[in-house]
Amino acid sequence: MGWEPEEVTEHEYDEQGRLVRSVTTREPEWDDEERGWMLALAAHRASLCPHCGRPLSVCADPESEGQWTVPPPRRCFATTALRAMAPEYKDSPQPEALLLHAERR
């Protein structure tokens, strides 16, 4: 899921056909476009609140103070089932290495 920079090798020969020099060049992995994308991603991430993940311009706007509500929490029933099952494996060898997963019936 990526790409390999292109590599080109040029050979130089003397009058007798002997190899005198070989130069390999490789295209840069980070060109201007890739750097631009990564800088844009860094700027986007820096604009987000580290607590709620919303844009700081929204959640830290003084004018939005008092305009937020917190609904009741929702339960993840898959995690509930996993946590309920985990104690059954606590005495198995290296229980922390077990990869428990939940499947919906």
Rank of each mutant, 00 (worst) to 15 (best):
A81F: 10
L39K: 06
A46G: 06
E65M: 12
L82G: 12
E33L: 10
G66T: 07
W68M: 11
A78P: 01
L82I: 12
L41S: 09
V23W: 12
S57W: 07
E27K: 04
S47E: 04
R74L: 05
A46W: 00
L56Y: 03
P62I: 09
S22A: 06
P72W: 00
T25G: 01
Y13W: 07
A60G: 00
E12L: 15
V70S: 15
Q16E: 10
W37L: 13
H44D: 09
T24A: 14
L39C: 03
E63H: 12
P73E: 02
C52Q: 02
P28H: 04
E33T: 07
S64D: 04
R26N: 03
L39G: 03
A60Y: 08
V20G: 12
S47P: 02
C59L: 01
T79D: 10
V70G: 01
S47W: 01
E65S: 11
E27T: 04
T25E: 02
P62M: 04
L48E: 12
R75D: 03
C59F: 09
Q67M: 15
R21A: 14
D61S: 15
R21L: 13
A46E: 14
C52P: 05
A40D: 10
S47M: 02
T24L: 02
T24N: 10
T25N: 08
D31A: 14
T79G: 13
L56C: 03
T25H: 08
R21M: 09
E15S: 14
D61L: 15
H44N: 07
G66H: 02
R45D: 06
E65W: 11
T25W: 06
C76L: 07
V70N: 07
E15L: 09
L56V: 08
C49Q: 05
V23F: 14
Y13H: 07
Q16K: 11
W68A: 14
T24G: 08
P55S: 06
T79K: 10
A40E: 12
T25Y: 03
V23P: 08
H44F: 09
V70P: 02
C49K: 02
D32Y: 02
W37Y: 11
E33S: 05
W68V: 12
A43P: 00
A78Y: 11
Y13A: 08
E12H: 15
V58A: 05
H51V: 13
W30N: 00
E29D: 02
W30G: 01
F77V: 05
P50A: 14
P73R: 11
S64G: 07
V20N: 08
W68H: 13
E15A: 14
L41P: 02
E27C: 05
D14F: 10
A81W: 08
W30S: 00
G36V: 11
P62A: 13
R26V: 12
R54C: 01
D14L: 09
E27Y: 01
D61G: 07
E29F: 00
A40F: 09
H44R: 06
A42G: 00
L56F: 05
G53Q: 13
P55M: 04
T80W: 03
R54G: 03
V20H: 13
E34R: 10
W37K: 10
R35Y: 03
E34G: 08
D32R: 03
R45A: 13
E63W: 13
A60T: 05
S47A: 15
L39T: 04
A43E: 07
G53K: 06
P71Y: 00
C49R: 06
